[in-house]
Amino acid sequence: MIPPAFEYLRPKTVPEAVALLQQHGDDAKILSGGQSLIPMMKLRLARPSHLIDINRISGLAYIKEDGGFLKIGGLTREAELEGSDVVRAKYPLLLDTATVIADPQVRNLATVGGNLAHGDPANDHPATMLALGVQIVATGAKGARVIAIDDFFVSLFTTSLQHDEILTEIRIPSPPPRSGGAYVKLERKVGDFATAAVAVQLTLDDKGAVQKAGIGLTNVGATPIRAKSAEDALRGKKLDAATIGQAAQLAADAAQPGSDLRGPAEYKKGLIKELTKRALTRAAERAGK
């Protein structure tokens, strides 16, 4: 399957890339890792007239702690997250997520920015970033602006990025002491999209009660879903079986899955309940360490 023809453009800087987006309008697309876009082009699900390849722009791939955030450049590859010492030491939720995305070859090219900007609720990072409460930096003609992750996912394959904006950075708030996270995914086989998955990020107080909780759900709706009522139900409570069970039920209630090849909707709701229990338990263990 050879994709339809397009014009290929290779800017050297972000402003150049933005100018190209403005010049070529709605049919121009950014080529980042290409691991979602190229398969879609082969299937004619995407037919961009122009591809703007940002892979040669230097300074867009980095992972660094700075000013109370872990800052991840938009062009950072999934494999770089897996190999990062700071991610391994302090961001277990991110590490869990990066290691279950597709397979090693795909992770060598696929970018964190692309995983989010694609706006696919079946991707793994969106739920993770909802649970972590991150900020997205979008760079356009007028410079950079910050978008709260809660305002980022609009509908299926649609984010609040403007047409002439590029996702240049993700800012993850540095977790306070007694924090931990986990991503638990059920997939039919390695490399598949999630049948369902749950991302949890917790911060406990010095008595072991939940101070802060973030819960994100993968592939059970038109957008990635933040399970707010489940988060609220956890606040101030110790994570005993009853509390975990109640939050898991609320997370399942927040899911809006459809029935498809990966299973009927009711099954997926049940799955969210169980995966939430597991993710909460694992996150709490990690927070307690």
């Binding site: 290929y8 080529l31 290409g34 190229i38 398969p39 397979d103 070859q105 795909v106 090219l109």
Partner: peptide
């Protein structure tokens, strides 16, 4: 030809990639 099987794997700049999913 759909980024699943890995038969097309080559090493590009030191990293394995699926050459059916790279221009």
């Amino acid at each position: 030809d759909t980024s699943n099987c890995g038969a097309c794997t080559v090493i590009m700049n030191g990293k394995t990639v699926k050459s059916c999913t790279v221009f």
